[in-house]
Amino acid sequence: MERKKRLKNLSIAAILAFYCAISLVPFYFLVIRSFTPTLKSGEFYFWIPERPEVQMNARLGNLASVNNIDITKLKKDFGLKGYIDPRLTLQQLAERQGIDAGELEEYLRPFIQYNGIFVVLSNGFLKSLWGTIVVAGSSVAIGGFLGIMTGTALAGFRRPWHLFVYNSYLLNMIVPPMMVILPQYFIVTQFLGLQDSYFAIVLLHIKGGALSTMVFTTYIAAIPKSLRESVAMDGGKHYHYFWYILLPLMGTPFAIFASIMMPLFWNDLLLGLLFLSPEKYTLPAFVATLGGAYGRNFEAVFSGVLMSLIPILVVYFIFQKLFIRSAMAGAVKG
């Protein structure tokens, strides 16, 4: 009997392990792809392929086009003045500019060998990361807070118009965002003057949040009325109830809201491209610009995707317990 039970447990563990493995495989290959040179991207690798070497007879222009070598930065780092002819090979560049060829080779080696990571880092990844944290973080925090306030007002649908307001929020879910993108752009930039501002995106993320309204209204409606009444009996005001009773209970619905909306806000490509200038692009917009008309630096794209995933994974691990609690919400102990 015991043996049978152990076998059953082992089988379940094996199935779960297999499921876990196939879920993680894409991440594994994302890591491999982040270190696979673009022009080998047609090959399939199980491990990071051999790193290419710097070729001193390669033309600077070709390296700029294919490996995104930043000629302006190179000029600055080597203190070069004037126009740098992209037709020059690296060797010719060193000779004409009086640079030590070995030094130039060393300088370029990381860009060639770990092209994706270096292109992403040297083209404003950290700035984009900061922009994304500001946008996604503010959107979740403000959106969640507004959702709680809305939910508090609408919970239980005590007035006939509450249902109307609730439904109007839900209407947001069926209006395709692309249909309203131009009027929104016009209002936000022309009337509110929020061109090239992170706040423009936050504003659009938090306006009329259907999901937050639904989650918080439902959750708050389930909170016993007696709690509110006891606050009133003790002479407390509504904001006392809101601040000291309601908010501390909102961890679980907030985690539900955050775990659904955070990845959406984090990965929002369209609004970033539309409202921000390239210097302020959020991560998805930043990664999208790594392509050209005739080619795309896939190593950089995969590196950008990998590196933009890391922060959100960190957030998930930090708030893991909260997210698990949200997943367990409603579960009844038997």
């Binding site: 222009g61 700029a64 086009s65 000629i71 992209p86 610009t289 050209g292 795309r296």
Partner: peptide, 30 residues
């Protein structure tokens, strides 16, 4: 042609040098 941004930037830098009051914000669309 985003892949030629570095080459274009190098050329536009010459214009900025000749016209110090002008800043050219170069970006690409794909």
């Amino acid at each position: 042609e985003g892949e030629y941004s570095a080459q274009f930037r190098g050329i536009l830098d010459l214009y900025e040098e000749e016209n110090p009051n002008v800043t050219i914000n170069l970006s690409s669309v794909n």
